[in-house]
Structure formats: C-alpha cells, structure tokens
Design a protein around this nucleic acid. Structure first.
Lengths: 113, 113
DNA sequence: CTATTGTGCAACCAACGGGTTGCGACCACC
DNA sequence: GGTGGTCGCAACCCGTTGGTTGCACAATAG
C-alpha cells in the first residue's frame, strides 16, 4: 500500500508532531540536520541537560521514526530520517488546502443569502 | 519584522507542533477545517470525551495560535487560523532541505577520502 | 592489564497534561 | 419570569513525561 487515506495519514502524523513539540527535541533535530550524524555525548555537550535526558529524547524521536541510531565501536551515532517529516508536511498542506476550501464555501453561502 | 531567522522561526514552531501532537486536537483541527467554524457542543457531540475536555483542547490550540473563538449569542464559535500551520510547514521544509545538504556534504567527504 | 570513555539500564522524583465532576452564570425562547 | 441550552471556572484525580542519579558494562587508549 503506497497510498493512504488522508485520515490515516493524519493519524500517523500525530506522533511525529508530538515528537517535534518539545523544544529540546526540536533543537536536537536541527543540530542533527545541520551538522550531520553525531554521537550522543557530542550531542549532549552543547545541551543544558544530562546525557541521559538527551538519550531519552533521541528514543522518543526514534519512536516517531524521525531518528535512528547505529552502533559504531563504543559510540552510537544518530541520524535523521526525513521521511516522516515529509509526510507531516503533506498533512499540514492538506489541512491548509481544506481550510481554504471551507472558507470559499462559507463565502459563497454568505453571498448567495 | 516580517522576516525571522530560521532558528527563531523554529523556536516558534515548537508550540504549534506540540498542539498538533495530540490525536484529539488533530481531529478537532480536521473537523474544523473540513466543515468550517463550529460551536463547542457541536464539536463535542462527535467526540468521545466531555465538552470540558474539548474546551481545554481548543484553548491549547488557541494558545498555539492555530484556533480562535468568537462569541455569537450564547455559543462560542471556533475557527482555524492557518497561518501558524503554514509557518510550521516552512520549518519542516527547511529541516528537510538542511538534511539533504548535510547528506551531500557527507557523501562528498566520503568520496574525496 | 588498567584506566578511561561512551552507553545502557533502573529507580526515583516533581511537574505537567488530559480527563472528569460540580456548579454558577448567561443567553434565548415561550 | 421561568426553563432549557451553552458555556466558563475551579477542584480534583491519575497517568505520562522530562529530568536526575547511580551503577554496571563494552570498547578503546596507554
């Protein structure tokens, strides 16, 4: 199944939005996107919280499919998977489109009065 | 100030993502976008939770700038403001773009080895 | 082999979030 | 003016979450 209904796509988007909703996670995502794959301690160096907190956030991102890790030696390198982000972006686009359509219908209804 | 830095735009996007992160709120947004402005009780009729819960969710959406209410008689009518959604969509686009760029840099680095 | 570095796991804590109930106020309609 | 519908506010409950600390364990460095 390569195509989904708009409703199910939106249901899938909710966890992605929830994952991006935390400022710390959002900053992790931006650092990973701008600088590329990084280890946990490297990511925690700049952060204001513990390494463990960063680890938890990374797992939340992984749960939403936004990030994944791969073990290299003794460190685990994390990188971004942009696929769910693109899907979320499509959902936002669909919402905006529907809203414009609803506005048009409303306008027509008022004018025909 | 019509233009913002990418960083500050992303900071502003976090509350929007957080607001969209809840399935119930996301369904409220879709119902409002598809059907147009609606009162609270009308919105709660389809929902599986109390009117108060719906009210709370609506206020969360309002806090993120996604929804706003206007009093008409004894009922308060809620509608969507798509502006923050478009901003959030631009943020996602920027993230995807940066990630592609990082991938390109990484590829070049590996190949030049 | 030993020391150090990078992680993972578990327990624990405070705060927040989503939900409910109860009640009082307001507006409309007859 | 009473009655029913619509809402807001406040209190309360409890599960989740973001964060910390402590410790054990694997992998590199010396």
């Amino acid at each position: 199944m390569s195509r989904k209904s708009a409703a199910s796509a939106l249901r899938d988007a909710a966890p992605v939005f929830a994952a991006l909703g935390d400022p710390m996670r959002l900053s992790l995502v931006t650092r990973l996107t701008e600088t590329g794959p990084m280890s946990i301690t490297r990511l925690s160096d700049g952060a204001s919280v513990t390494r463990q907190a960063v680890t938890k956030h990374l797992h939340v991102l992984a749960g939403a499919g936004i990030a994944r890790s791969r073990r290299r030696g003794r460190e685990s390198v994390w990188e971004i998977d942009a696929t769910p982000l693109r899907a979320a972006r499509r959902s936002l686009k669909a919402i905006s489109r529907d809203w414009e359509a609803a506005l048009d219908r409303l306008k027509a209804f008022v004018e025909e009065g």
